[in-house]
Computed example of a mutant assay.
Amino acid sequence: MNLGDRPLLIDVTRLIERARKKRMPTGVDRVCLAYIAFFHHRAQALMQHGAIAVALSPAASFALFAWLLAWREGKPHPALGPTMAWLARLPLRPVPKGSWVLNMGHSGLDRRGYGAWMARKQIRLLVMAHDLIPLTHPQFCRPGEDDRHAARLQVILRHAAGIVSNSQHTARVLRHYAQQWGVTLPPISVIPLGANHLRHAPPPASHEPLSAPYFLMVGTIEPRKNHHFVLDLWREWKSRQADVSLLVVIGQVGWMCEDILEQLRADAILKDSVRVLHHCRDDCLWAYLQSARALLFPSHEEGYGLPLVEALALGIPVIASPLPVFREIAGDVPDYIETSDTSAWLAALSDHSLPDSPMRQGQLERLRHFSPPTWEQHFQQFTEFMSRL
């Protein structure tokens, strides 16, 4: 990849904020961190504070990138406070004119003046289109998120030098909004996200494997992921038979989920059959995936579905809602069931929980022919796309 004389900067504002709050990386964060892992030896860190954007020196950037990658891996590392205090003592620099800026987490894109700053600095902005769910499904998002996301998209469509879309599905929706707003779509490349990171996760050291059969659900606890549906399934399943498989829910507390959390706290039936992990490092997630009967993915809508691809890459069956993007990235491998068909979901759970499950064996056979996308492939396509801009 030939960048010419242009500096390459990675916006780390989102990651710093989430690490400061002691949150675990989400799917978007994992994408941002994958870009740091690939570009850390040739890029500098960019940080925003209010209306100010500054670049860190190459040495300070390298140190911060190492800290963030350790955060991703869950490895021991110095606390963020002392690390940032040390970085603050180093010289901060204006963002060089004409820089490439990778803003994969959309930090500050809804801030008034971001577009003018890019124009003044002649910034070559590259962004990831993760999804347009705040616009297409605002009922699943926090109030006002639709307006904020529309503001981000306006900046992206009017000012980005290039857009990477995680799926054809996301790209189609993005094209629709560009046409609706009368904006010419910048150059766009559809590049699937890699699914090989968990295969390189360290062996689970502290995790105690469950001896009983269990199913797994992975994702932030928020309405779009449809945890409510799965918990109702478990109540219904338990009402039909005393001995049911366990459900393991791995996900940080999100938004608009107070009823789900209260149900998990107060429901005696769910207390006996559901285990919830709000903080789970990659080695913990890897261990739970390895032994699960299946990953459950009944989402109302997704832009991609990284847990689905990671599960399939590890050879773990998936039971999912039949979203177009799931079929795009996983073909006919998962067992797709409409969430309106409770009986079919219960039958699938019962079948997959059996040691000699015909349904599970059928999916395992289909899985033999599944070739998951990798981060190596992603960045090969990304650098080719970037070289054409």
Rank of each mutant, 00 (worst) to 15 (best):
P317N: 13
R30C: 06
L367I: 07
E384M: 14
A201E: 02
L231I: 07
I52F: 15
L135I: 10
P134M: 03
S57D: 11
V95Y: 05
C257D: 13
G251F: 09
H40I: 00
L68H: 07
Q252Y: 01
F370Q: 10
W181D: 01
R293T: 01
P143H: 07
R111G: 02
Q381V: 00
P204T: 01
A287T: 04
G74V: 06
D11N: 13
P372S: 06
T342R: 15
A311Y: 04
A151H: 06
H40T: 01
P78T: 00
L323C: 07
L261P: 01
L125S: 06
L277R: 08
Y288C: 08
P94I: 01
H137K: 11
V248H: 14
H227I: 04
I163T: 09
R175V: 01
L364E: 12
A330T: 13
K22C: 00
V218I: 11
A347W: 02
I269A: 09
M256C: 08
A266V: 03
L174F: 08
F297Y: 15
H228S: 13
A70N: 10
A45L: 05
A160V: 02
A79F: 02
L109G: 02
G315M: 11
A66Y: 00
S61M: 09
A178L: 10
D283A: 09
E73L: 12
R235Y: 02
M128F: 03
Q361T: 01
P202N: 03
W255Y: 09
V244T: 13
A268Y: 04
K22P: 00
Q377C: 00
E145H: 05
R23C: 03
R93D: 00
H378W: 01
H369E: 02
